[in-house]
Design a protein around this nucleic acid. Sequence first.
DNA 1: GCCAACGTTGGC
DNA 2: GCCAACGTTGGC
Length: 161
Amino acid sequence: MAKAYWLLKSEPDVFSIHDLEAAPNQTTDWGGVRNYQARNFIRDQMKPGDHVLFYHSNAEPSGVAGVAEISSAAYPDSTALDATDPYFDPKSRLEQPTWFAIDVRWVQTFAEIVSLEQLKADPALVGMEVLRRGSRLSVQMVSKLHFDRVLKMANARRKNR
DNA sequence: GCCAACGTTGGC
DNA sequence: GCCAACGTTGGC
């Protein structure tokens, strides 16, 4: 089956693309997602090998910071099951978990952030979810066209320097 | 720090 | 089932 393309948001003050690159096995468990639409993406649609745009939100500048890939199937989010965890959700049970996590592995850190401003300015990216006003979903589906375009923007900037 | 845009909660 | 209140996200 064809690989799918995603955008994952993270606040770099909390967890950045550099943190992912420096993590053991350059991999982290992507947990703590508490939105049903995002949960459904994680649980039902993400597959190992799927491509990920790693997006820095609440950042200076905000934008796509690099590329990662999904490296596991979905599994119950342990942070929801641990009563001492800030993401604990008493409604979630191990036998019937409400929330799911997935492993994300680092692939590439862009030489420079492809900023939200640049993304907005590119006519080829019209319709991209992250550019929608009020778009708050932390897990978003991205078209292959848009994914490739962002990669191209990141590489073009490098060559032009 | 402001505030628009949401998603969730809870009273009814 | 409606919807106002509230909390959160995230750009600016």
